[in-house]
Amino acid sequence: MTKGLNRIFMTTLAFVLAGLWGLPFLYSVWTAFHEEKYSANFKWNAPITFENFAQAWNAAPFALYFLNTLILITIVIIANFILCTLVAYAFVRYKFRWAGLAFGLVMVQLLISPEILIVENYLTLSSIGLTDTIIGIALPYLNSAFGIFLLRQTFMTVPKSLDEAAQIEGAGAWRVLWNVYVPLAKPVYLAYGLVSISFHWNNFLWPLIVTNSPEVRPVTVGLSVFATVESGVEWSLVNAATLMTTAPLIIAFLIFQRQFVANFMRAGIK
């Protein structure tokens, strides 16, 4: 009997917590789909409208912002895949002097991430004339300690016998990397790619500092420029724009939910 009561109590608690947790987001969704006059007074049967999304889309160059984010993410991910693979391969397969120290120095980036060093990185960027460019936003993120760490952990699980068998067949360093190590790390690449997309889609401070003109702004910066309520933009439009800029991520999450969760778990287990 107490077991049944306990269960009812726990279920109620869980629903209340989950409900409260969802509330800010649901309220934002509700406002985005209704006319401005309803954002102050909630009516369950208020008519649903898509007008806010259309207005927000036309009020700022969001298509351009999306394109910029897409270019940025593509550059970063391709660079990350190549560069992190090379470094991880060197650490796993070869021995060299000061390897431990070198690895420690690489891992420093996990702690002192580029966000912390905005002042000097901005000076570097302006001295090579790359401020206000997409490549400038990407530059500090092209190589990543997290990616190197993840791939190193994966490469270490590759059986030495496979490596040796490939060498006996006459494969050189590059063939071994491409035909033995990389294929075995495929799920990690997928998982790391998903995390990277989410990270760079969300990144804000650095792009805010580096960019000046709408032509290179990613969506996060574009959204913040559009959604300054003091400038008189209506709440329903702000909420519509907010949802619009995050929709691709939410949809991707719903599709890849399983991989996402599995991958975040893997990152945690290390």
């Binding site: 560069l83 992190c84 090379l86 470094v87 391969y89 060197a90 397969r93 070869y94 021995k95 060299f96 070198a102 120095l105 690489v106 420093v108 980036q109 002192i112 580029p114 060093l117 002042v119 000097e120 990185n121 570097t124 530059l139 500090p140 092209l142 190589n143 300690a145 360093a173």
Partner: peptide, 29 residues
Amino acid sequence: MNKRLPLGLGFVLLVMPCSLLVAFTHYPA
């Protein structure tokens, strides 16, 4: 065990990729 890292390969695998990391992490610090 592991082979020694030849100089040329080490340059491509380690020095080039890591110089980017150093340029935006250690150098600015």
